[in-house]
Amino acid sequence: MRDLELNMVFDPSEVLRPSSFQDAVETLDSSDSKIVAGNTSLYSLARKGRLENIKKLVDISKLGISYIKEAESQTSEEKKILVGAGTTFQEITSSSLINGRPEYAGLKEALNKSPPQIRNVATIGGSICSAVSFYDLPIVLFALGTTLKFFSKKEGEHLITIDSFFQNPALYGKSLLIECQFSSSPNSASSFVKLCRRMSGYAVAMTAARIKLDRTSREIDDIRLVIGAMTKTPQRLNQVEEELRHKEPSIETITRMCEKSADLVHDIIPSVHASTAYKKRVLPILLREAITTAVERATER
């Protein structure tokens, strides 16, 4: 048995540089290849022997997937933004499409939690595909209801919701994420609240919210709530959303609904200095703050 563990030394022999999506997914066919995007975690995990044997590295920088732009067909009700999977945090956070817009305020907050060295290399696609629950950005993207455009050998280009991605990220291991799409409508806003022990550290718990208010009644028209660093993968709180939909967003209602949330989330995993019990206690508080902030932002519009 011991002999099988041999050669955990990180020693890839090749860097492949596909120039088409087709070529790229073909490189992913073999079990010993891995995409290198911003590389904020791949080499470090591999060097610690935490990844399967990697022989081929796939460079996706020649695929032309670093961009942020508005979709061509825009309606007055909905504006869609398209972000290439290889776009860095820095490129997104400095884009005029994001800045100053309440619907993306949560996105900007999450992006800016990382230090410049990470913002300059980390990509939106990499943060999603890592499929861990302690990265800030995917939590907000989840709350924004992002649509993911994948390319796979079988299906070519196809769209899936981020919800279905997080239901089983492993399904997409051999596909290539090429684009993230998120749309916003008037009266909507997002927020991101993170509890951490060190201000620049990983979250102990975090929540993101996107809320759309009804233009006339000012009731909650649509709401998406996501929690991170609590469970193994980011989780959406459908039940809390359901309870708040079409309600007037008063602080009392929000607080009451949030208090229920702790009992609705199962499988909360402890982190080094925060037990499951503690996370349960702070969940309603973070949630309340995320919702009230988003509501405030949506109201100001």
Binding site: R197, S200, G201, S271
Partner: peptide, 26 residues
């Protein structure tokens, strides 16, 4: 914030993500 935590006789937070020294914000 700082403490090296043992579980089953081994330290489980021997890295900068889980052992947190003050940053410029703290």
């Amino acid at each position: 914030s700082e403490e090296l935590v043992f579980k089953d006789g081994k330290i489980i937070n021997a890295n900068l993500a889980d052992y947190e020294i003050p940053s410029i914000f703290d």
